[in-house]
Structures are given as C-alpha cells and as structure tokens.
Simulated assay, not measured.
Amino acid sequence: MEIVILGGIRQIGRLAADAIEHLVRRKPDAVLGLATGSSPLPVYDELAARHERGLDFSRASAFALDEYVGLPAGHPESYREVIRREFTDRVNIAPENVHGPDGTATDIPAACESFEQAIAAAGGVDLQLLGVGTDGHIGFNEPGSSFASRTRIKSLIEQTRRDNARFFTSLAEVPHHVITQGLGTIMAARHVVLLATGAQKAQAVRDFVEGPVAAICPASVLQFHPHATVLLDEAAASALKLADFYRHTYENKPAWQGL
C-alpha cells in the first residue's frame, strides 16, 4: 500500500487523474471502476478538462461501485445518475459501456450475479477509484463485511445513512439498502486508488492504513492488495504515526515507478 500525502484536494484530483490518463493512453480500452460521493469529484473535473484537451475515452468502459435499492430510474441521487452527471456525460465514454448494479431489479441476487459476470466479460477492472467512510467502509461494505464478498445487497448502518443524508432533502429519503461490489470484487481490480480528505476521515485512515486487518474496518483489506494507492490531504493524514515516513518515501520515489 502506497500512502501519498498532498497539500489539498486539487493536488489529489490531479494525481489520480494522472494515473487514469496514463492508463487510458497506454490501454485505450481500459476498464475503470467509478465511485460516487464527494471524494472523486475533483478527479472527474480534472478528467473532463483533459478530455476537452484531447484525452480520448471512446474505447474505455466503466463500472459503478454501488447503487441504492429502490430509487426509481432517473432519480437524481441514484448513483447511475450521479456518475452520468459528474463524469460520463462530460467525456466520450459510450453510454452502453457504462454499467452499474441494478437497484430496481425484482430479482436482486440475479442482478448481482449479472453485474459480476459483466465485469468478468470486460476483462476485470483496471483501476478502481474509492473513497472511505468514517467507519472504514469502502463501497457499501459496512463493518463486518466478508473479505471474500462479491456484489450483493447490503443494509446501511445509520451512520452511513446520516453521512449520505446531505445529498437528499431529509434522512427519511435515504434508502436502507444498497447493492455494492463486495470486498472480494474490489480486491480483484488491478489497481485501487483510494482518496480521503478532511479531519473527519483521519481516524478511519489510521485504522485501515496502520491498524490490524479486521472486518470491523473493511478498508483494512487493502493492506493485502498488490497495488493500492492511498491519496490523502494533510487533515486526513493527521492521525498517522508514520506520516513523515510516507512523505519521505513519496518525495524520493523514482519517477519510473509512476503511481
């Protein structure tokens, strides 16, 4: 796991966009894993700007990390709509190449299996963007999730619902269930890039970076990933014991290694 501490969210957005641009230029038919929430928005802004300057996504495909269960198609806070609005409509990814779990399906287990099969048929995810919750969840894999889990339905804990209520007009509108890629699905991505900013994420960052690998902190499973990159601002990194070591390592990293 590589820990990179940067001055702010714009720097984080640029560095994550650098990794995606390098991937897409090297592999035009790259498979991207897209997250929602606040963390990836600067990355999407940066990629949209680079697309205007010629970065081509026409052969790329994308898979969303998760989706609410029960929101009607076209609901502005469904993650399919958020991904479309914040990223895919701003670049030239073909709409038919953008996939997400079906939160409106009548047969949820079948929809989850179909989504897993679609990822496999695409050749697997090349780069997965992630945020992290204040309780250490990634995707909607809440504390206690199996490290071997695949795409499935999950119940949201109340803290997560409260954290997400800012996107709705009231807490009552936040669904109680989601479909999410499992931790096993996320770990199958070839490169994972997790972004975290703000002091409210500091304890979760310390837990999953420097704490034990344990189901109570789902993001800690990334300690086992062969290519996981964690991009932090100073506030999110403020509880890390080895912060100075991480800074020194990144500042002296050979350029040829990339991200």
Rank of each mutant, 00 (worst) to 15 (best):
T36K: 04
D66Q: 10
D45E: 14
Y44N: 05
L34I: 06
A60G: 14
F63C: 07
S58M: 06
R59G: 09
L65H: 06
G37V: 03
A64G: 15
R53V: 06
D56K: 04
A62P: 13
D56L: 03
A60T: 15
A49K: 13
D66M: 08
F63H: 04
E67D: 10
D45R: 13
S58P: 09
D66N: 10
E52S: 14
A48M: 07
T36E: 07
E46T: 15
P42N: 03
A48L: 12
R53L: 12
R50L: 08
L34P: 09
H51L: 10
G54I: 12
E67M: 06
S58W: 02
F63Q: 06
R50I: 09
V43L: 00
A48P: 15
P40W: 02
S38C: 03
E46H: 14
E46C: 15
L65C: 05
L65W: 09
D66T: 09
V43C: 02
H51S: 10
Y44H: 02
R59S: 13
A48R: 08
G54R: 13
S58Q: 06
P42F: 01
A60V: 12
S61A: 15
S61V: 12
L47G: 05
A64L: 14
L55N: 10
L41D: 09
D45G: 00
D66L: 11
L55M: 11
V43E: 02
G54Q: 13
V43H: 03
G37P: 04
A64V: 15
A35F: 12
Y68H: 01
R59I: 02
L65I: 12
Y44L: 02
P40E: 01
R53G: 04
Y44P: 02
F57G: 00
R50T: 10
Y68Q: 04
A62W: 08
R59P: 01
